[in-house]
Structure formats: structure tokens, C-alpha cells
Design a binder for these strands. Structure first.
Lengths: 116, 116
DNA sequence: GTTTTCTTTAACCATGAGGTTTAATATGCC
DNA sequence: GGCATATTAAACCTCATGGTTAAAGAAAAC
């Protein structure tokens, strides 16, 4: 088991637990954006969006580069890799559950449920 | 991009964001445990631990089977697979960051920092 | 130098998270 | 029945989260 720094993983998972923040990461995957651009599609005030960005920064998922009055944000992949590494320990469990689903679907194919 | 149900992913990531809950999952990976067993190693009251279990249940990471007065909990892998699937979209980003680290380590090997 | 643009700060509010303790509810055991 | 065990429920506390609006700062444009 990888030696994990709890508080880092806490922050990463917490950061990922909000849809607005996941949406931001999704857009940042396409390249740098500044705060205004990050906030625009979100149905919330600008200060609220700005707070979400700071949550992402505390989790080190986002880095900010200040250029004049514009704050450029870029995705930082490593913490996602850390989260993935933690999840990886459970791979066999979710693969087992997919196997069970496969088996169920196979069974249904061979033996379709009879409409009443 | 996989069609994701936001609230499910919200709950899974939120559930993973607390060290006590990750510890519970870690122990459940070894097999079923009841609440008393899950709570014992945690430095908190039993009711607090019980609440954590319910957070895991709401995220469908844990299923409970009541046998008499004992509540047996088992790990449910699928939501971890869902979280992994979401993270998977970012794999190239964290791999890139590991590559950068590799390059840095290589560079340091070839060109060690001079002690002053 | 004034105005516009990008961002932060401050003050506030409602709700939820995470914890406690004490009491209630079931079940198992003698 | 009577007592111990496993768990939930209730009441409460404190602090964080997620949101708002309004004001303040800094940089750019004119």
C-alpha cells in the first residue's frame, strides 16, 4: 500500500466532490483559462467561482500564473494520479462487480425475461 | 466523455474525502465487518463511526446486511470503478507530470546539484 | 486621470459535516 | 424476565462549505 499523506488525499477527493469543480477541471484539460473564462459557464456569482478555484489550488489540482490583471489557471495532473493510485488498490473489487454484471447480462441473453 | 450522474460522483468523492472512511474501505477490502469491528480502531465515538458508514452507504460504496443485532458491511466496488472511470479521462495529464518528474530526476543524475 | 476590466476581500447567511453525550430500541444469552 | 450487546436516534455544539451582495484593489485602455 502506497504511503499516503492523508490530508493531501482529503483535499483532492474533496475538491473532486463538487460538480462545478469537476467541470472546471474538465475545461482546463483543454488548456489554460483565466478566472473569468472559468467562471462564465457556471450558474453562480464570480466570487463563488473564484472560491472553487481556490479549493482546486489547495488540492494542488490547479496552478495559477498571474499575468497583469489576468489569472491564468492550468491543470496540474499529479494529484489526480495520486487519487488514481489510491483507487487502484481496489481495482479487483470493481472489476469483480463488472464481471457480475456481465454474467447477469449473459444470463439474460440466454434466458430472456418473459413479458407477462 | 462518459455520461456521468453528478450526484452519484459527488457522493462517492465526498465519501472518499475523509480518512476514517477510506480506512473503513481499506479494512472492508479484506472482507465483511460489522459496525462494532469497523468502529473499534477509530479514535471516535461509536455513533460518529456509524455516521461515517452511512455516508459510505449513500455513496453505495458499502452494503449492509442485518443479521440479528449485528450489521454486516461489505465493500461494493462499482462506484470506485465509476470514480476511476472519471479520473481515467485525465490519465495523460498525470502521466505527463510523472514524465516531467522523470526528466528532472534524470537531469539531476547527469548534472548533480553542487553543494555550496 | 478617468473609466473599464479582472480579481479579491469583507460581511453576511443558510446548511451540512463531523463530533459529542445521553437515551431509546432490538436482539441474544442466562 | 433480566441483563448484556449492537445499533440507532435525539439533542446539541462547533466549524466548514457554498452561496450571496457590495466594496476595494490593480492593471489596462482611453
Amino acid at each position: 500500500m502506497v504511503k499516503e499523506n492523508s490530508t493531501t488525499l482529503d483535499r483532492v477527493f474533496h475538491a473532486l466532490a463538487h460538480p462545478a469543480r469537476r467541470a472546471m477541471l474538465g475545461r482546463l484539460a483543454g488548456g489554460e483559462l483565466n478566472l473569468t473564462e472559468l467562471a462564465r459557464p457556471l450558474r453562480m456569482s464570480f466570487p463563488a467561482a473564484s472560491k472553487h478555484v481556490r479549493v482546486l489550488e489547495r488540492a494542488r489540482l490547479v496552478r495559477r500564473r498571474v499575468v497583469g490583471r489576468s489569472h491564468h489557471c492550468r491543470l496540474e495532473g499529479k494529484p489526480l494520479g495520486d487519487a488514481n493510485a489510491w483507487l487502484e488498490n481496489y481495482r479487483k473489487h470493481w472489476e469483480a462487480s463488472f464481471d457480475r454484471l456481465d454474467a447477469l447480462l449473459d444470463e439474460m441473453k440466454r434466458n430472456p425475461p418473459t413479458p407477462e
